[in-house]
Design a protein around this nucleic acid. Structure first.
Length: 403
DNA sequence: GTCAATTCACATGAAAGAGACCACGGTCTAGTG
DNA sequence: CTAGACCGTGGTCTCTTTCATGTGAATTGACGA
C-alpha cells in the first residue's frame, strides 16, 4: 500500500513536466559566461592583471563591494581567461583562489600558508609545524620555477579580523625574497572601510590598485534574473511580475544578486513541490520565509552548547515579559540554566562576547546603551520572526536536554 | 537653574592559561633472518 | 638488524579566565543668580 503510494509518487514525478530546465544556473557557485553590467570592472581587472602574461608582476589589486555584487564572479571570470591564454601560449601563470572565510581551511596565518603550499603539491600537516617552517616550504615551492602567481584572497577582511594584518605584510614583502617567481595579491572584501584599520605599510602595498563594485540596482538585477531564468526555467513558467518582485526584494537588500537568485530558485522548488504549473508571486513570499527559517534553524542547531544555553536564556526571559533585556539579567538566568543542565557556567565577560557573536549572526539584536546613573549595558531583543520562534525553542530544548 | 563631579553596570582590551590536536625525533621492544 | 610502538618536546588553535581600563548619561550636589 505504502510502497505503491511512493512508487506512484515517483512515477508522477517522472511523467510530470518539470518546471526547471537547468536548476544549476540559479545555484550560487554557477559561473555564467557573461556577466551583465560588470563590463567596466572586468576590463579594469583585466588591464591590471594583464602584465602577468608577460611575466611581469601585476600590481596588487584590492576589490571592494557589498555581498552579491559580483566581485568574486568577475575576478574569477577574468583570471580564468588569463589562465586560458597562458595555457595556450605556455606562459607559467598560476592562479590560486582562496576563500579566507572557510573555517579550518584558511582562516589563520598558518592555515593560509599551509593551504597555499598544498596547492603547490607539498604535503603540510594541519598543525604541529612552526609557522615559519611552513613559510619556508611555501617559498621553496613557489620559487622553484620562474612564474607569476596570482593569489586571490576572498573575504580578506575576515582573515585580517581573525589573524591580524601580519600575513598580508609578509605576503606583499615576499617578492623581494623570491628570485624566480613573482606573486601578486588580489584581495576581495565586503567591508568598505576595511583598509582603514590596516597597517599603513600593508595598506599602501596591498592597494596599489583599487576597484569598487557598486551594488546592482533593481533594473540590473532584473536583467540578471531574466538572463538566468531563461536558461533555468522552461518557457512561460514564471508568471509575469515574479522577476520584478524578486528584483525588488533584492534591491531592497543593498542589491544582492546572489540573494535574488536564491529566492528565485527556492520559489521554483516550492512551486514544483506543490505540483503547480507556474511560479507565482506568492511563491516568492513563501520562499523568503523558508530561506529565513532554514537559515535560522541551521545556525541555531550548529551552535556550541554554551551559545545555545545563552540563547535559551534570552528566549526564556522574553517569554515571561516584553521589552528589552539586559546583560546582567541574561547572565542570571543563564547561570540557573547551567545548573539544570550540568553545564559549567562561563564568566560574565565571556557571556558578553557570546552575546556579541549572537548579534553578529543575526539571531538577536544587541545594542549597547547607557542608562545613565543605572549603568551601561546591552539592550537585547530577539531578531527572529515570531513565526519561527517555537521551532527554535524546541531545538534548543532538545539540544540542551531540557525536555 | 546651571554645571561639573560622581556613579552605575556593564563594555571592551590585553594577556595568558587550559586542553585538544599534531609532527618530529629519540628510545624501546619484539620480531626476523 | 629493523619496523613499529611509545614517549617527550614543541608547535598551532580555540575557548576561557583574569585583570585592567573605558564609557555615556542620569543623578547629585555645590554654586551663583
Amino acid at each position: 500500500m505504502v510502497k505503491k503510494g511512493i512508487t506512484g509518487l515517483f512515477e508522477d514525478y517522472l511523467t510530470k513536466e518539470p518546471l526547471f530546465l537547468d536548476k544549476e544556473v540559479l545555484q550560487a557557485n554557477y559561473t555564467p559566461d557573461n556577466i551583465p553590467h560588470r563590463d567596466d570592472q572586468i576590463t579594469q581587472i583585466a588591464k591590471i592583471l594583464a602584465p602577468a602574461l608577460r611575466l611581469n608582476k601585476p600590481s596588487n589589486l584590492f576589490v571592494y563591494g557589498k555581498t552579491g555584487t559580483g566581485k568574486t564572479l568577475s575576478v574569477r571570470h577574468t583570471t580564468n581567461h588569463i589562465l586560458e591564454v597562458s595555457k595556450k601560449n605556455k606562459i607559467p601563470v598560476k592562479v590560486f583562489y582562496i576563500n579566507c572565510k572557510l573555517k579550518r581551511v584558511a582562516d589563520t596565518e598558518y592555515r593560509l600558508i599551509a593551504q597555499l603550499a598544498r596547492e603547490f603539491g607539498k604535503a603540510v600537516p594541519p598543525t604541529g609545524l612552526p609557522t615559519d617552517e611552513v613559510y619556508k616550504i611555501f617559498y621553496n615551492a613557489i620559487d622553484h620555477n620562474k612564474q607569476v602567481v596570482l593569489l586571490i584572497l576572498d573575504e580578506i577582511d575576515q582573515l585580517v579580523k581573525k589573524a591580524g594584518d601580519e600575513i598580508l605584510y609578509n605576503l606583499t614583502r615576499i617578492n623581494s625574497e623570491l628570485k624566480n617567481a613573482q606573486i601578486s595579491v588580489v584581495g576581495i572584501s565586503n567591508d568598505l572601510v576595511f583598509t582603514d584599520n590596516l597597517d599603513p605599510r600593508v595598506k599602501s602595498s596591498l592597494s596599489e590598485e583599487e576597484l569598487v563594485f557598486p551594488p546592482y540596482n533593481a533594473l540590473q538585477i532584473q536583467d540578471i534574473l531574466n538572463q538566468r531564468a531563461k536558461v533555468a526555467f522552461r518557457d512561460g513558467i514564471l508568471r509575469s511580475g515574479v522577476i520584478e518582485k524578486c528584483a525588488a526584494y533584492a534591491a531592497k537588500e543593498h542589491g544582492d544578486a546572489r540573494r535574488a537568485l536564491e529566492l528565485l530558485r527556492i520559489a521554483g522548488e516550492l512551486a514544483e513541490r506543490s505540483n503547480e504549473l507556474h511560479v507565482e508571486i506568492e511563491h516568492l513570499d513563501l520562499a523568503e520565509e523558508k530561506i529565513e527559517r532554514d537559515r535560522m534553524v541551521d545556525i541555531v542547531s550548529t551552535q556550541p552548547k554554551q551559545f545555545q544555553a545563552v540563547l535559551y536564556s534570552i528566549y526564556a526571559i522574553s517569554e515571561t515579559r516584553k521589552g528589552n533585556i539586559s546583560t546582567g539579567e541574561v547572565y542570571d538566568v543563564y547561570k540557573s540554566i547551567c545548573n539544570r543542565t550540568a553545564l559549567r557556567p562561563l564568566t560574565q565577560r565571556r557571556l558578553s562576547d557570546i552575546l556579541a557573536e549572537l548579534d553578529m549572526l543575526g539571531i538577536i539584536n544587541a545594542k549597547v546603551i547607557s542608562k545613565g546613573r543605572y549603568g551601561r549595558t546591552k539592550e537585547i531583543s530577539l531578531a527572529t520572526q515570531p513565526s519561527i520562534e517555537p521551532k527554535i525553542r524546541s531545538i534548543l530544548k532538545n539540544d540542551l536536554g531540557l525536555a
